[in-house]
Lab assay of single mutants.
Amino acid sequence: DWREIAKLAEEALKKQQPVTVNGQTFNDPNEIKKLLETAQKAI
């Protein structure tokens, strides 16, 4: 669910920690931002 992904990505950016989505881990803040943008577009 994109809403859940957006929430996870936002928290990861705030806490500056990696986030795992669908078994894929994102460590890079730039990648997390991209993930968040993608999720927000999909909602």
Score class of each variant (00 low, 15 high):
Trp2Val: 03
Lys7Thr: 08
Lys7Pro: 00
Thr25Phe: 11
Gln24Pro: 01
Glu10Pro: 00
Ala39Val: 06
Ala12Gln: 02
Glu11Trp: 07
Gln17Asp: 06
Pro18Ile: 06
Val21Arg: 00
Glu11Asn: 08
Gln17Gly: 09
Asp28Ile: 04
Asn27Pro: 03
Glu11Val: 06
Ala42Ser: 09
Glu11Tyr: 06
Asn30Asp: 13
Ile5Ser: 00
Pro18Gln: 07
Lys33Asp: 04
Lys41Ala: 15
Val19Gly: 00
Thr25Met: 09
Leu35Phe: 04
Gln17Ile: 14
Ile43Arg: 00
Leu13Asn: 02
Ala6Gly: 04
Thr38Pro: 01
Phe26Val: 08
Gly23Phe: 04
Glu10Tyr: 12
Ala9Glu: 00
Gln24Ala: 03
Arg3Met: 14
Lys7Gly: 07
Glu4Thr: 10
Ile32Val: 06
Lys41Arg: 08
Lys33Gly: 06
Pro29Phe: 13
Ala9Leu: 15
Lys7Arg: 13
Thr20Arg: 08
Gln17Pro: 05
Gln40Val: 14
Ile5Met: 04
Leu13Tyr: 04
Ala9Val: 12
Gly23Val: 01
Phe26Trp: 08
Thr25Asn: 06
Ala42Gln: 14
Leu13Trp: 04
Asp28Gln: 08
Pro18Thr: 06
Glu37Ser: 06
Lys33Arg: 15
Pro18Trp: 05
Ala6Met: 14
Gly23Tyr: 04
Lys41Thr: 13
Lys33Pro: 00
Thr38Tyr: 02
Thr38Leu: 15
Ala12Ile: 01
Ala6Ser: 04
Asp28Trp: 15
Ala6His: 08
Ile32Tyr: 00
Gln40Gly: 03
Gln16Leu: 06
Glu4Pro: 01
Glu4Gly: 08
Arg3Tyr: 15
Asn22Trp: 10
Lys34Asp: 10
Lys14Cys: 08
Asn30Pro: 04
Ala6Cys: 12
Ala42Ile: 15
Leu36His: 02
Gly23Lys: 04
Asn30Gly: 13
Glu10Asp: 08
Leu35Pro: 01
Ile43Trp: 05
Asn27Gly: 04
Ala42Pro: 03
Ala42Cys: 12
Glu10Ala: 07
Leu8Gly: 03
Asp28Leu: 05
Trp2Gly: 02
Ala42Lys: 12
Gln16His: 13
Lys33Thr: 07
Ala42Asp: 04
Val19Lys: 00
Ile43Asp: 05
Gln17Thr: 14
Val19Trp: 02
Gln24Asn: 11
Glu11Phe: 04
Ala39Gln: 02
Trp2Ser: 02
Gln16Ile: 07
Gln24Arg: 09
Lys34Ile: 12
Leu13Asp: 01
Ala12Ser: 04
Asn27Cys: 07
Asn27Glu: 09
Arg3Ala: 14
Asn22His: 10
Asn22Ala: 07
Leu8Ile: 12
Leu36Cys: 03
Lys7Asn: 09
Asn30Trp: 14
Asn27Thr: 05
Asp28Phe: 13
Thr20Asn: 06
Leu13Gln: 02
Ala42Leu: 15
Lys7Ser: 10
Ala42Tyr: 15
Lys41Asp: 08
Thr38Gln: 13
Ile5Glu: 01
Glu37Asp: 10
Ala12Asp: 01
Thr20Ile: 13
Ile43Phe: 04
Ala6Thr: 06
Pro29Arg: 11
Ala39Pro: 02
Glu4Met: 13
Ile32Leu: 06
Gln24Tyr: 12
Lys41Gln: 12
Thr25Leu: 08
Arg3Trp: 15
Val19Glu: 01
Ala6Leu: 14
Glu37Asn: 05
Asn22Ile: 03
Asn22Cys: 13
Lys14Pro: 01
Glu37Trp: 06
Glu31Val: 09
Ala42Gly: 07
Leu8Ala: 11
Lys14Met: 14
Gln17Lys: 10
Ala42Val: 12
Gln17Trp: 11
Phe26Glu: 03
Lys34Pro: 01
Gly23His: 05
Gln40Met: 14
Ala39Tyr: 03
Pro29Trp: 10
Arg3Phe: 15
Asn27Phe: 14
Asn30Arg: 14
Thr38Gly: 06
Thr20Tyr: 11
Gln17Tyr: 09
Pro29Gly: 05
Ile5Pro: 00
Asn30Glu: 15
Thr25His: 09
Thr38Trp: 13
Leu36Phe: 06
Leu35Asn: 00
Lys15Met: 13
Lys34Thr: 09
Thr25Gly: 03
Val21Asn: 00
Gln17Ala: 09
Ile32His: 00
Asn22Gly: 08
Lys41Glu: 13
Glu10Gln: 13
Glu31Cys: 04
Asn22Asp: 03
Ile5Asn: 00
Trp2Asn: 04
Leu8Arg: 08
Ala9Ile: 12
Gly23Met: 03
Gln16Val: 08
Glu4Leu: 14
Ala9Thr: 06
Pro18Arg: 03
Gln24Glu: 13
Ile32Pro: 01
Ile5Asp: 02
Glu4Lys: 09
Gly23Trp: 03
Lys7Phe: 12
Leu35Met: 04
Thr38Cys: 08
Asn22Ser: 06
Thr20Trp: 05
Asn22Thr: 03
Leu13Val: 05
Leu8Met: 15
Thr38Asn: 09
Val19His: 01
Val19Phe: 11
Glu4Phe: 10
Gln16Ala: 12
Gln40Ile: 15
Pro18Ser: 09
Leu36Arg: 02
Pro18Asn: 05
Lys7Ile: 12
Ala9His: 02
Phe26Arg: 02
Asp1Asn: 11
Gln17Arg: 07
Thr20Ala: 07
Thr25Ile: 09
Leu35Gly: 01
Lys15Trp: 11
Ile32Cys: 02
Asn27Trp: 15
Glu11Gly: 04
Glu37Val: 07
Gly23Asp: 07
Gln40Ala: 06
Gln40Asn: 14
Ala6Pro: 00
Leu36Trp: 13
Leu36Ile: 07
Glu11Asp: 10
Asp1Arg: 11
Thr38Val: 13
Asn22Val: 03
Asn30Gln: 13
Gln40Asp: 05
Ile43Pro: 04
Ala12Glu: 01
Trp2Asp: 03
Glu11Arg: 05
Asp1Pro: 09
Asn22Met: 14
Lys41Ser: 11
Lys14His: 13
Lys33Val: 11
Ile43Glu: 07
Thr38Phe: 13
Ala12Lys: 00
Thr25Ser: 08
Leu35Val: 04
Ala12Cys: 03
Gln16Tyr: 10
Pro29Tyr: 13
Val19Pro: 01
Asp1Ala: 11
Glu10Leu: 12
Leu8Gln: 08
Leu8Tyr: 06
Glu31Ala: 08
Asp1Leu: 11
Arg3Asn: 14
Glu31Pro: 00
Glu10Thr: 11
Arg3Glu: 14
Glu11Ser: 08
Lys7Leu: 08
Lys15Ser: 14
Asn27Asp: 13
Ala39Lys: 00
Glu31Tyr: 08
Leu36Val: 04
Asp28Glu: 11
Ala6Asn: 03
Glu4Asp: 10
Ala39Asn: 01
Lys33Glu: 12
Ala9Ser: 06
Ala12Leu: 03
Gly23Thr: 03
Val21His: 05
Ile43Cys: 07
Lys15Asn: 15
Glu10Lys: 08
Ala9Lys: 00
Trp2Cys: 04
Asn30Tyr: 13
Glu10Met: 12
Leu35Glu: 02
Leu8Phe: 06
Gln16Asn: 15
Ile32Trp: 03
Lys15Pro: 00
Asp1Gln: 11
Ile43Leu: 15
Phe26Ala: 01
Ala9Cys: 07
Leu35Trp: 04
Lys33Met: 11
Trp2Ala: 04
Glu10Ile: 12
Ala39Ser: 04
Asp1Thr: 14
Thr25Glu: 05
Thr25Pro: 03
Gln24Ile: 12
Ala12Trp: 03
Ile43Ser: 06
Asn27Val: 15
Arg3Val: 15
Ile32Phe: 01
Ile5Leu: 07
Ala9Gly: 03
Asn27Lys: 09
Ala6Tyr: 15
Pro18Met: 06
Leu13Phe: 04
Glu37Lys: 04
Lys14Leu: 13
Glu31Ile: 10
Ala12Pro: 00
Asn30Cys: 07
Phe26Ser: 02
Glu4Ile: 09
Lys41Gly: 08
Leu13Arg: 01
Glu4His: 07
Gln17Phe: 12
Gln17Glu: 11
Gln16Asp: 12
Lys41Met: 15
Ile5His: 01
Lys34Gly: 04
Trp2Tyr: 05
Pro29Met: 14
Glu11Leu: 06
Gln40Phe: 08
Leu35Gln: 02
Arg3Gly: 14
Leu8Cys: 04
Thr20Pro: 01
Ala39Thr: 03
Lys34Leu: 13
Thr38Ile: 12
Leu35Lys: 00
Lys41Tyr: 09
Gln16Pro: 04
Trp2Met: 04
Lys7Glu: 08
Val19Cys: 10
Thr25Gln: 08
Glu37Gln: 05
Asp1Ser: 15
Ile43Asn: 06
Ala9Asp: 02
Thr25Arg: 05
Ala42Asn: 15
Pro18Glu: 05
Lys14Tyr: 13
Arg3Gln: 15
Ala12Asn: 01
Gln16Trp: 07
Lys34Ala: 10
Glu4Ser: 09
Trp2Gln: 02
Leu35Asp: 01
Asp28Pro: 05
Ala6Gln: 08
Glu31Asn: 04
Ile5Ala: 02
Lys34Glu: 10
Leu36Gln: 03
Glu10His: 04
Asn27His: 15
Lys14Val: 13
Lys33Leu: 12
Lys7Met: 14
Trp2Ile: 03
Asn22Phe: 14
Pro29Thr: 10
Gln24Gly: 05
Ile32Ser: 00
Ala42His: 15
Leu8Thr: 07
Pro29Lys: 09
Pro29Asn: 06
Ile5Tyr: 03
Val19Ser: 02
Gln16Gly: 15
Leu36Lys: 03
Lys14Gln: 09
Glu4Asn: 08
Val19Leu: 15
Lys14Thr: 09
Ala12Phe: 02
Ala42Phe: 15
